[in-house]
């Protein structure tokens, strides 16, 4: 009897506090509306011109002049860097609008890493970084390749950008307890934060100027969670290691998944109609 009473008191307390949190949250969402609108505007309006610039750049004729060549290389690097940032903002806009659906296919993770290294060549060359890959995966795996590409690209880009010049970045790919484990380790330090979630928060006010805006890592966390996985980091002895775990069980590639989502719905016999 006493337990019942205590339970009721606790439930009422939770209800009261939850309502309070909901009210405070409304104000928080309202205050962040401008940020969200800004992100979605950028995603829509910057992407097309950027795509056109990137498409036309390779067709520009370079005069036989070393100075022009250097200017051309700089423009190309800056365009690729800007495009990476725009693609991240588009990913944020997709996540926040609910248009980020998972799409599973048989994926060669090594190929994805190679593609990322190619796409990030401008940062890698600028920082004179070396990348060491330890691929312990024995075969291709079924996973959302686009999301894994975005996760890895952000971690590798951060690893290069916030490490000293001439540093080596280590990428390890393996399977641990039926999950894809990705480790990205680089020399460097993390922004000083009070708690880990702040590192994964976009536009966190507490992050110092020497680090990014937190957009890339907020995307990494969100995409990991979309794939039922997780991301965490450790920082010690001037090395930062990000660890991503993405579960592989229960995934079927979309091309072979005719109705797999509905397997639980084969029968609605004896279902209640409401």
């Amino acid at each position: 009897m006493q337990n019942e009473e205590q339970k009721e008191i606790l439930e009422n307390e939770v209800k009261f506090l939850s309502k309070k949190i909901l009210d405070l949250n409304k104000k928080l969402i309202e205050s962040k509306k401008a940020e969200t609108l800004f992100l979605s505007l950028i995603a829509n309006n910057f992407n097309n011109p950027m795509t056109a610039i990137l498409g036309m750049l390779p067709h520009l004729k370079i005069q036989d002049d070393a100075k022009n060549e250097k200017i051309f290389a700089t423009i190309r690097q800056e365009a690729l860097s800007l495009d990476f940032k725009i693609q991240n903002l588009i990913t944020v806009a997709e996540i926040e609008s609910g248009n980020s659906q998972n799409s599973y296919s048989l994926t060669d993770i090594q190929k994805i890493v190679n593609e990322i290294i190619q796409d990030l060549r401008y940062v890698i060359d600028e920082k004179k970084s070396k990348i060491e890959i330890n691929n312990l995966l024995k075969s291709r795996i079924i996973i959302d390749s686009k999301k894994v590409y975005t996760i890895l690209k952000n971690l590798i880009a951060n690893g290069c950008m916030y490490a000293p010049d001439d540093a080596t970045l280590f990428v390890e790919l393996s399977i641990e307890n039926s999950a894809l484990k990705i480790l990205v380790k680089n020399r460097g330090t993390l922004p000083k934060v009070n708690s880990k979630p702040e590192v994964f928060t976009r536009f966190s006010q507490k992050i110092d100027n020497s680090h990014g805006l937190g957009v890339g890592l907020s995307i990494v966390r969100e995409l990991c969670e979309n794939l039922c996985g997780s991301v965490d980091y450790d920082a010690e002895n001037n090395f930062v290691t990000f660890k991503v775990l993405l579960p592989l069980n229960k995934t079927v590639q979309d091309s072979e998944a005719c109705g797999w989502d509905e397997f639980l719905f084969e029968s609605f016999d004896n279902a209640i109609e409401i």
């Binding site: 939850s18 949190i21 909901l22 949250n25 409304k26 928080l28 969402i29 962040k32 969200t36 944020v92 996540i95 926040e96 609008s97 609910g98 980020s100 979630p197 702040e198 994964f200 928060t201 976009r202 907020s218 995307i219 966390r221 969100e222 969670e225 979309n226």
Partner: peptide
Amino acid sequence: LPFWNGNGLQSLKFGNISTPK
């Protein structure tokens, strides 16, 4: 989850983001 708490993105896994959307 019921509430987006300001950390991370405003994704639709939170009730106070998803239901108004």
